[in-house]
Computed example of a mutant assay.
Amino acid sequence: MKTFLTATLMTASLALTGCASIMSGSTQTLTFKSVPDTANIVITNKLGEKIHTGSTPATVTLKRGNGYFKPASYDVTFSKEGYQQKTVDVTAKMNGWYIANIVFGGLVGFLIVDPATGAMYSLSPNDVNTLLEISNTESNKMQNNQNLTVMLIDEVPKDMLARVQFIKQI
């Protein structure tokens, strides 16, 4: 009887959960970095509500879904005095574990659990790295002064790295 009860409880728990809920969860942790660092960030949802305010670098946990079969979407605004403001979109895409419900026979997870919890989605991009451009007024001031910025290659955002020209490698 004890074995039957244990088997029944395990079967019920597997049948009433979704693959994406088990493997990924309903929230996702994202990292936000900027060059220069210590830029202010404001994260707002689709409705324009502020979800998070802080400064870079930051690690924030966001919900993947925005209701039943509704993916979440966020606007992340970076700002710093002397630099142009920049906004990056973070959007939800289908999570691969959600499709695993079909393979493993989790109809309840496929139609109810994962869509209701938002676990059927993954937020993209996972790591948000942005380069803030110097504002025109700061640029005019800096034209009179010659400046050189030295950075470690690991600190350069990927989108900026494509434009980098190496002078000399040691």
Rank of each mutant, 00 (worst) to 15 (best):
G105R: 08
K158N: 10
L30A: 10
F104G: 00
P157I: 05
K70F: 04
K63N: 05
T44S: 13
K33H: 07
S21I: 13
N129V: 04
Y68F: 07
A20P: 03
T38H: 15
F110T: 01
K46C: 03
G105V: 04
F166Y: 15
T61S: 09
K86H: 05
Y74W: 03
G65P: 15
T44G: 07
G105Q: 07
T11W: 03
K46D: 14
L132P: 00
A39I: 02
A7Q: 05
K80T: 02
V108D: 15
I99M: 08
F4P: 00
P36Y: 11
Q146L: 11
K168H: 05
L161F: 12
L107Q: 05
S135T: 01
V108M: 11
E133K: 13
G82V: 01
E81Y: 04
E155D: 09
D37Q: 06
T29H: 10
A15N: 01
V88R: 03
I41Q: 09
A58R: 14
S13A: 10
S21A: 10
L152G: 14
F104Y: 13
A7G: 13
L111A: 03
V128E: 06
A12I: 11
N40F: 06
T27C: 04
V60A: 11
G67R: 07
V108Q: 11
M142H: 06
L123M: 12
I43T: 06
P57Q: 02
K2V: 07
L152Q: 15
P36E: 03
V156Q: 12
F104N: 00
K63R: 02
I41V: 10
F104S: 00
N145M: 15
E81G: 02
I134V: 10
V128K: 14
F69W: 12
P157D: 09
C19A: 09
L123G: 00
N66H: 08
S26Y: 14
Q84F: 01
R163A: 11
K158H: 09
H52R: 04
V90G: 03
G118R: 03
M142R: 06
A7C: 13
A39E: 01
V108A: 15
G109H: 09
S24R: 01
D154F: 10
Y98L: 00
N66R: 14
V164Y: 03
D159A: 15
I134N: 14
S79C: 08
T29R: 06
V150H: 04
L47M: 05
K70Q: 11
M120G: 13
T130H: 01
K2M: 12
D154I: 11
F69D: 09
I167Q: 12
S122P: 13
S34N: 10
K50M: 15
L123E: 00
T3H: 08
